[in-house]
Design a protein around this nucleic acid. Structure first.
Lengths: 185, 185
DNA sequence: GGTTGCATGTAAATGGTTACATGATTGT
DNA sequence: ACAATCATGTAACCATTTACATGCAACC
């Protein structure tokens, strides 16, 4: 998903500065499905203004650089709706851990076990974050709640699967040497 | 995940040509977690040979361009293990559909419903593919089976969640006009 | 005194996607 | 006839990531 559309969508949700858009995609339910960095956001915002899809209101602040609040224009909203009309591509799961796990046989079982345990803990953290987010915003829009629930369900499935099948992958990893004596045989 | 490491990993799994590596990441259990295109594979393979991490054996074929079979070298295997040692980054879910759903209120309910139904069907297709893959290779390595199972669990969670909560997001979308008369009111 | 948060931006480097170029075979 | 499969590769294009540049305030 390109930064331009991501910014346009963020502005449709409410007026914001570049800094705030970053936070939007870093915290909250949206963070689980997308990401953007400053290096993409600021140029994208400049371009949106040039194209007339957003307008910028500078808000002077003391002891801080001016805050630039962007607002979507009617033209911007049409453009967003147009880009929403195109058939969305398939969902993608990208996991470096899964790549690593594919070569479990090359790695010591202890390392694999730690990696799995850490990842299960991470999944549970993400779930807790989503729960916290929902508790914080009980009046959130239905669509935001739907996304949060979907993220939660996916993380839960991954955590549960890993917990249930952990032993299988550990059995595939390099067995630890039961003792130095054995290693020297 | 960069193409170079993806290729190195593929070769660790067995000797292959560029074309075969593409297939490996396009079909089978691995396809759900990564992707690579020819434009990345061929330059990556050339580089691996230059770096001494793989070697290439040309296999002439009649009526076809020569097939170039690549094999990982011991140096390549060490390099792979080294790259496996670095702490894997967090898992990422990327979904254009979820971005769209965030703006369900801007779109007609019928469109949202179709999108959801299509996606549920797609998830179920992916699950069936994984099942078929497992039925085809009953003697697959434990790590490959683990990944297939994980993919299956994630797709199932997403499909089930969407089926169960479909009505909520449809309620948030633009209600269809019950009749032309109403629209003209 | 060091880190985090607020706040914006540019430029280089990196690297992937897409399009192009070639061409025979097999299946519909 | 037309599409798909097999088979490799280059080059332009596009975009993100990363590093750099600046600077104050608040907290530990």
């Amino acid at each position: 998903m390109d930064a331009r559309t991501l910014c346009l969508g963020a502005l449709e949700l409410g007026d914001a500065s570049g800094y705030e858009i970053k936070k939007l995609y870093e915290e909250g339910d949206l963070s689980h499905f997308y990401a953007v960095g400053f290096g993409s956001i600021y140029p994208a915002l400049t371009r949106l203004v040039q194209e007339g899809l957003a307008e910028c209101h500078e808000q002077p602040q003391d002891k801080r650089p001016d805050k630039k609040i962007y607002r979507i224009t009617p033209k911007g909203r049409s453009e967003l709706i147009r880009s929403l009309a195109v058939q969305p591509g398939p969902d993608k799961i990208r996991s470096e851990l899964c790549f690593l796990l594919l070569f479990a046989n090359l790695l010591p079982a202890a390392q694999i076990e730690k990696l799995i345990d850490d990842r299960i803990a991470w999944y549970r953290e993400q779930m807790a974050e989503i729960d916290a987010c929902e508790a914080e915003h009980p009046d959130a829009e239905a669509s935001a709640r739907f996304l949060g629930g979907l993220g939660h369900a996916i993380y839960k499935a991954a955590a549960d699967y890993m917990a249930a099948h952990k032993s299988e992958i550990i059995a595939a990893a390099q067995a630890p040497m039961p003792g130095a004596a054995r290693a020297a045989e």
